[in-house]
Design a binder for these strands. Structure first.
Lengths: 129, 129
DNA sequence: GGGGATTTTGACAACCATTTTCATTTTGGC
DNA sequence: GCCAAAATGAAAATGGTTGTCAAAATCCCC
């Protein structure tokens, strides 16, 4: 009985980058899906809790979601113009975080790492335009 | 005429970790300062724009501010229990972000890195309590 | 299938940090 | 002192997100 949740996940999978709850809702409605905003929020949360999608916060405080290919721990390289996202691994960063944390006596160390930039196609279209 | 702004900065300096705008406002009022919430927000923004304070977002979307000792680029090791914060440098991370970005054709690369953990005194008080 | 308990759904209201508005106060220049 | 420009702050607006609660769908045991 998770038709709705599956629909939300599918919508997310079809997207290249991170999408907000409101985005997902609008897109689903546009495609004729009969679903409420509340349910989209709940589905997104459940998906995030279950580790099926990754969440991050934009600079203006919106939560954005993405169905990632890898279930393993990874980070994101996000185009700040078009939102195109590449999943990247960073073993060096993992080790660094762990080291710097324990050097200062911290335990149960976690970290957030996101890399932003302008992707190749966006920088060429800027030059062209 | 930046008495207010200076007062906000001073309040921030007296804090160990990151504080929200509402925190700063409440504390200033408690100490008898005559200042409005709007002004605290404005001062915090100006300070952040000028690079005098660092900003980050909590998991629940609140913006929190900190007057950092170093004006240079650095990251934070934050205790998730008491908020105690240590400024850390990560040259390896800087290089990694730059490398991973250009490998994928991205330019104008920036990054956000935060490390969370439980600090020594918090983990010992948990064991004791 | 039937019936009742349980879960899911979604329209709407409530929340709450943050921003905007706008009238008042303060400041700086002369 | 006087005026224009900037700063201030109380109150209202904003907007993403969450809570409420009644209706609808689903499950489960018979």
């Amino acid at each position: 009985m998770s038709t709705r949740r599956d629909a939300v996940r599918d919508t997310l999978r079809r997207s290249e980058g991170f999408r907000s709850a409101q985005d997902v809702y609008a897109e689903m409605r546009q495609h004729g899906a009969k679903i409420g905003l509340t349910t989209v929020y709940r589905a997104l949360q459940a998906l995030a809790d279950g580790g099926d999608v990754d969440v991050l916060r934009t600079d203006d405080g919106e939560s954005v979601y993405r169905a990632c290919a890898s279930g393993d721990h990874h980070h994101h390289l996000v185009c700040r113009r078009c939102g195109h996202t590449v999943e990247v691994a960073g073993p060096a960063v993992e080790r660094w975080a762990e080291t710097v944390g324990s050097e200062h006596g911290f335990t149960e160390i976690t970290h957030t790492v996101e890399v932003f930039g302008t992707c190749a196609s966006c920088s060429s279209s800027v030059r062209a335009g």
